[in-house]
Design a protein around this nucleic acid. Structure first.
Length: 212
DNA sequence: AGCCAGGACTGAG
DNA sequence: CTCAGTCATGGC
């Protein structure tokens, strides 16, 4: 398939998707502040297998409590953190993940992360408990504006449709990255468009539902 | 009234 | 390495 043409087709069909909103507002260009970077990372974790609508509520709670900062997350009792992020589901796992992320950031200042190579940054993110390939790549792309193609279940489904050559995350990612210019803005919109497409037509789950 | 969402981890085969 | 089970709330 011609991924460039597919992108244009998706863009015509669904229009710009407006990922990733910061404070409820989509900000595509402009230098991101430390606070904005952190909000995107927190959102990336909270949205794991969770509708963005629910994540907005959790982020709103954290923001209202003025606790959307690594130091505050670290110093907060687990019960309180869990209560704030409850709308996003999986609150026990995610509270643990947020604390681990925050501790890592506390000893890795943003000024260092901004100039760390993409490969090294990806390794460090993946080393954290609770951050897998998709979350790591989402952070690299949507927070740090690195040209990394984010693969999700819908993307894998697209890849499998192509002669089942790309069954793994990495293979699927390499396919897209090798057929597109390394443009973070392009990857940003492309991934969001694939999700939009998947919601409409893609069965994410194989739903091997058998009639009883 | 069920499904399932902008996944990752664990344990078993 | 593949695969099922687990985690949890809220929208449609």
């Amino acid at each position: 398939m011609d991924v460039k043409k597919q992108y244009q087709t998706l863009l015509r069909r669904f229009g710009p998707q407006g990922w990733w909103p910061i404070g409820g507002v989509y900000r595509l260009r402009g230098q991101k502040t430390d606070a904005e970077l952190f909000e995107i990372m927190v959102g990336a974790i909270l949205t794991q297998n969770t509708a963005w609508k629910n994540v907005e509520q959790a982020l709103g709670n954290l923001r209202a409590a003025r606790t959307l900062r690594p130091e505050r997350i670290i110093g907060m009792p687990r019960a309180r953190l869990e209560r704030l992020i409850r709308p996003a589901g999986y609150f026990r796992q995610k509270s643990k993940k947020l604390k681990i992320l925050s501790r890592w950031l506390a000893r890795s200042p943003f000024v260092r992360l901004r100039v760390t190579s993409t490969d090294e940054l990806r390794r460090e993110l993946l080393a954290l408990w609770g951050i897998g390939p998709e979350t790591a790549d989402s952070i690299l792309l949507y927070a740090f504006d690195r040209p990394v193609f984010v693969v999700d279940a819908y993307t894998l489904r697209l890849c499998r449709g192509e002669g089942r050559r790309f069954k793994s995350y990495d293979a699927c990612q390499r396919f897209f990255e090798s057929h597109l210019p390394g443009d973070a803005k392009l990857f940003n919109e492309y991934h969001a468009l694939i999700v939009a497409w998947g919601k409409r037509y893609g069965q994410k789950r194989r739903t091997t539902r058998r009639p009883k």
